[in-house]
């Protein structure tokens, strides 16, 4: 059973994203869903095509930035939107599969294009109740 959830945080010019989960990989996957949710409604994206990505960073907060920016890069260069993320984190290395489809403006009504994940409000931590939280502001 999954306990993951995501939300958007208020930021004057842009938008913050937060993923929460019972594990670090789940929180990262939820943060990615939150980012896709900035662009379009997740229900509109059919997760039929798969892209594999990897990244590595010395700290978990940098790993979150690298992970989100890798998704931004894949969205931009493959012209795709993603609505499902399978994430494994081993040490400081992340491997993931992204599931989505080609962007279709009529279907997806994409609100914005994401420029990149920022260090603003960047936080990766485990709360007292054991829940993992991964968040930052993204520039749109």
């Amino acid at each position: 059973m999954t306990t993951g959830r995501w939300e958007h945080l208020e930021h004057g010019a842009d938008i913050g994203i937060r993923g929460c989960g019972s594990s670090l990989p789940e929180a990262f996957a939820q943060a990615a869903l939150a980012m896709s949710g900035v662009v379009t409604d997740l229900d509109n994206i059919n997760p039929v095509d798969t892209v594999a990505v990897e990244c590595e960073a010395p700290e978990f907060d940098l790993l979150l930035i690298d992970w989100l920016n890798e998704i931004v890069y894949q969205m931009a260069t493959r012209n795709m939107l993603f609505s499902r993320f399978e994430v494994e984190i081993c040490g400081h290395q992340l491997r993931a599969r992204l599931y989505g489809e080609a962007t279709n403006p009529d279907k997806h009504q994409p609100a914005v294009e994401i420029k990149g994940a920022t260090f603003t409000e960047l936080e990766v931590r485990q709360a007292a109740n054991g829940e993992w939280i991964a968040q930052c502001v993204i520039d749109v």
């Binding site: 940098l62 930035i65 690298d66 920016n69 931004v72 890069y73 931009a76 260069t77 420029k115 990149g116 994940a117 920022t118 260090f119 520039d139």
Partner: peptide
């Protein structure tokens, strides 16, 4: 466009670290 965004992303991380 994407070129500027990617340069910003990469150098922000490099300069921060």
């Amino acid at each position: 466009r994407g070129l500027g965004h990617q340069i910003g992303t990469e150098f922000l991380r490099l300069m921060a670290t």
